[in-house]
Design a protein around this nucleic acid. Structure first.
Lengths: 410, 410
DNA sequence: GGCTATTTGTTCAGCCATTGAATTATTTGC
DNA sequence: GCAAATAATTCAATGGCTGAACAAATAGCC
């Protein structure tokens, strides 16, 4: 019963074109195969004349290009397929995580056209230095993108922590960041991206949110509502509802790691008791599996766990089962509350999915009221590591697709 | 980062007027004081000429009317205020609950213009008979509405259970309903409402959802994102995000009663263990307070509890504190997940709020990661009993406000 | 090979709604 | 009584969509 069909603001004379540009471009982006102008007309309800005019604008702005005639059966003049341009605007994705820095460039079609990862323990590094290194990597990425005919039109930075609207990182516990004014720190470097109306130059966001966006826009298209859980040292969730990330009133949604699963259980660093993180966080699993923490840098813990589980190690299997059960309790609660039919396990959980999924599904079957009528899918993320960086870059180009008028008017 | 600013479908020539009609009417509906055409022009960004034309359409369709010149200071021609018409389209709200039937009529402005409640234990009544009685009450309501110059343009029925898209009541456990095809049963009676393009004649929905919508549209306007919890025999929640009810993938969101709060605790009729309902449901509280269930019809249980608590009865106070704590654990989880800043206690909880709020707030303070930076408000619902019926009727008129073109084109 | 049916894409006059400036209407303050 | 100020309307101009006609390009058929 979404009654908010209308755009928020006034619908002016020119808005009409803006809206139809977005409508047509969105269809081209969402299509399985390159659609013809006629396909777009029937799909959108616009006349062929209007579609032609709109497409002409999109072609002139290098947002789409014509592809070779698609093979088609039957009589008639052959259609010319329309695809998102492989040159033109692109998004810059940045990620600071506990044990790596990542930079990538994603084009309109969602393809990753550049990718750099720098592995290092970032915990002892002060924020300004980490960002400076990231800027250096981003400069190389921009040059590479330019060589491929791509123009960076916006950047998004993924951080494993809470970020406010202004881009201030309020708290990134595992990184040791506290009230870090990222936009101000980045403003001291030369700008990385070209300014385009309607596209913010820099967005700072939670890593789990951006990874969920990456999953949302991955090909082939998946469901438009799902829960994406990033299992790292902390456990964060990105909540995608009706094709849009739900960010909460202040942008701090998704703290699934602090859902109480044993209200009188283990104390948590958040001040509560029995939070999910204490039972299904990386450290909890590693400890339960009997692995010494010291020997395991953060980035190899899950890999080692997967190895042991693969080999049939009883302790590891039990630890994973218990973690999966705790995760399942929390997920069952979320599914009861939000009625989602898809749960994606990302981050460190992706590699552990074979052992986590069964207990999660078992808890869902037991606890979800509607489980009998409609199954819930639990699956690992299709994006690999650095999913958040890819999602970050993707979120930039999605803005262009959603509001192409700004790029065309530049 | 909501990228879905655009309407879902094509923006045709005429859509422009449709959208601006909705925009202007929405502003009039949301305004604190009757705005002038000039106010609307500055508020919406449209020109005064356009606003005048749009308002003329709205006046001709009897959706708004001009009010007496509002007192204003300063020079200049006095403005003519615009208010939602107190005649014209209205919504019919219906509610079947365990111990009453309710019918009400709400006008465009959200005023309740007619209200009938019939108290009876509905559990032994077969669905067809209950609906027949409701139709009789609705007929009287329609006649009363007609006398006041109101035309019913749609109806919404609130049911304490799970409803699918087609209006089939899959399961209403406390009512004893199971797979009840409400639209088919109501189709056997003469139609209650006038057909208007864009407004469904009948919507069947969960009682908690509609009560939440009622809260959303209550005056004065409250927050646009909140959690509304209806504490009856079962515990349901309506989730309002950004001014829209979030219904989930299949429309079965809000089953907060089955959030696990003690995963190895009491078995629940849903098949799970330790569900919130077993600790904070009406029966759980009554039992914990030492009241015999037999002596208490459902509709007096909360009133009796409130009496006892008011009188300082230790058992009742302890029972309410424990229930509030369990509720707080669940709510803390939801707030961590969705980052909401307002929780409304409705249904049976409204009367118990003085005793439930403190423990709920205590759990939130302990368990919500961001509680230190941004407070969470927990308050009782402003609507009284039969909130769902009022919300149901309100949901109908909100459709007219959101899409006035259909009414104007009739 | 030529004809027809079929589908795609473009052209163009017509039309609808918004725009912006000019005009009228109505009040306050001096 | 007049100037200033604010509200609302009028009207020619404009931008963008519409629908129908038309041109382009192919397959099927004889």
């Amino acid at each position: 019963m979404s009654l908010t069909h209308a755009p928020a603001g006034a619908v002016r004379q020119g808005s009409l074109r803006e809206l139809n540009l977005a409508l047509v471009l969105g269809r081209i982006a969402a299509a399985e195969r390159p659609p013809s102008r006629a396909d777009l007309a029937t799909a959108t309800g616009l006349t062929r004349a209007t579609v032609s005019a709109v497409v002409e604008d999109l072609l002139a702005g290098h947002l789409v290009s014509e592809s070779d005639p698609a093979p088609r059966s039957g009589a008639g003049r052959p259609a010319r397929g329309l695809v998102l341009a492989d040159q033109g605007p692109a998004g810059l994705g940045l990620e600071v995580n506990v044990d790596y820095l990542a930079v990538c460039v994603v084009d309109l079609a969602g393809e990753v056209r550049h990718r750099t990862v720098h592995r290092a323990d970032l915990r002892p590094v002060v924020p300004a230095d980490a960002l400076a290194q990231l800027v250096e990597m981003a400069g190389a990425a921009r040059d590479d993108a330019a060589d491929q005919g791509l123009t960076l039109v916006g950047a998004a930075l993924a951080v494993p922590g809470l970020v406010d609207d202004a881009g201030l990182v309020r708290l990134a516990p595992n990184l040791g960041w506290h009230d870090v004014p990222v936009p101000a720190l980045l403003a001291e470097h030369p700008p990385l991206v070209e300014q385009v109306p309607g596209v913010p130059g820099l967005v700072v966001d939670n890593e789990a949110n951006l990874a969920a966006l990456g999953e949302l826009h991955s090909r082939p298209p998946g469901p438009s509502s799902f829960l994406h859980i990033s299992g790292e040292v902390g456990i964060g969730a990105g909540i995608v509802l009706d094709g849009a990330l739900f960010r909460g009133v202040r942008g701090w949604s998704g703290e699934i790691g602090h859902l109480p699963v044993h209200p009188e259980g283990r104390p948590c660093r958040c001040g509560g008791q029995g939070c999910l993180e204490q039972y299904a966080g990386q450290e909890a699993i590693v400890t339960a599996a009997g692995l010494a923490r010291a020997e395991l840098p953060a980035d190899t813990a899950t890999a080692r766990l997967a190895e042991l589980a693969e080999a049939g190690d009883a302790d590891a299997l039990r630890a994973l089962h218990d973690a999966g059960t705790a995760l399942g309790v929390a997920v069952a609660g979320v599914v009861n509350l939000l009625d989602l039919d898809t749960v994606v396990l990302g981050g460190g959980y992706a590699a552990l999915a074979p052992w986590l999924c069964p207990p999660v599904l078992a808890e869902i079957a037991d606890r979800v009221l509607t489980a009998a009528w409609s199954p819930v899918t639990v699956r690992p993320s299709t994006l690999g590591a650095e999913a958040a960086a890819v999602g970050a870059a993707g979120s930039v180009v999605r803005r262009i697709v959603a509001q192409p008028a700004g790029w065309l008017a530049r």
